[in-house]
Design a protein around this nucleic acid. Structure first.
Lengths: 194, 194
DNA sequence: ACATTTATGTCAGCCATGTTGACTTTTTTC
DNA sequence: GAAAAAAGTCAACATGGCTGACATAAATGT
């Protein structure tokens, strides 16, 4: 059910079994057809879990992205979000308004620069976002365990290397900065009002 | 330019540097935030190359998927394609009609079952599809090289494990069947007409 | 032979999420 | 005081999903 079971009745005729591998030597390297398709199927499943939950709120994938990055960068500006998502102000505006109106995101004017709208998750938004992170982390953890020993580092390096070279360092810095901020916040929490 | 450079001027205040790692022990395993985000950025870049080319033809991502799977399974039925893509007949119908009208795909009635419409790429469609495969394979190959030795097998296992368990075997069979068909075809080509 | 099922296609309309272009308001910066 | 920056808004449009209803041709079952 809802499977990828294909019968392909038409071409079930001659199959020419005496085919030795690599007869045409592939002029520009072998085509990575399996990986291309696996990436498609894997990514589809990866995003489907949050999608289903969000559908219950009348939200979609775009809302997920906004929640995710605001969670990772509390107090970020609208411009920052636009740079990360690479969509137009108008597209972001729509989902952001919905998220603010329904109490998932809080938008406060900047203290030093009052033109800015700094974005924060409300407790409600935080709870929902944690749920997404948990689900997707579970899938990733399971996949890493099943694919063997020190796969995590290798998969990470692979994913970084899949990014356009000119974007890599910025992306890695972005992630590092978010991780730092999380550490700082949890340190503050463990020593309340230190 | 079009970078992911975020300044985050607002939160550049207190950072509480004395934070030892893992203060909150993460009740359900550590959140894989870096991988979640890297997958997002990597996939976005991965699909952007074909997207740009297709834009020149007035086509989009949906057309890419159809071309890709028809290339991999020549003579497949419309139903097969629907099962793989998991979209509605109406959605597929739209892009399929455009691809047939503009001479990228050929749709022939089945010989044994004349209700069926069997899908084939035209030479024009084949050329375009090869281009996509080449571009995406290049990116994958580069990434695998950069992430070290026997990364290909591990990445493949990882991607398979990212798929919903109940879909995995069907997906792997689908890929295997397509690979077989390619071998059979190239064997036939090298020994033309037996 | 006839009823049913299957494979495909089509019309109409809706929704989510992207786009361009134009314009405003507020605030900061030069 | 002018220019630039941050944010928001209105209008219109494109793409690619969706549902529901219906039509046709061909295969299958009784």
């Amino acid at each position: 059910m809802a499977d990828i079971n294909v019968s392909l009745t038409a071409r079930t005729g001659k199959s020419e079994p005496g085919a030795s591998p690599r007869l045409s030597p592939a002029p520009e390297g072998e085509p990575m057809l399996d990986l291309i398709e696996l990436l498609f199927f894997a990514y589809r499943n990866f995003v489907s879990d949050p999608d289903e939950i969000l559908h219950g709120f009348g939200f979609g994938r775009a809302h997920h992205r906004v929640l995710h990055f605001v969670n990772r960068h509390p107090g970020m500006r609208v411009t920052d979000l636009l740079d990360i998502l690479r969509i137009t102000k108008q597209s972001l505006g729509r989902v952001l308004r919905e998220l603010v109106d329904q109490g998932f995101i809080d938008s406060r004017a900047g203290a030093s620069d009052r033109r800015q709208r700094l974005l924060y998750l409300t407790p409600k938004g935080e709870a929902l976002t944690q749920e997404f992170v948990a689900i997707q982390s579970r899938r990733l953890r399971r996949a890493l365990e099943e694919s063997g020993g020190e796969s995590r580092d290798l998969v990470r390096r692979f994913l970084v290397a899949m990014i356009d070279p000119e974007d890599r360092s910025a992306t890695e810095k972005l992630i590092a900065r978010a991780d730092q901020a999380v550490e700082a916040r949890s340190a503050t929490r463990s020593r309340p009002a230190g």
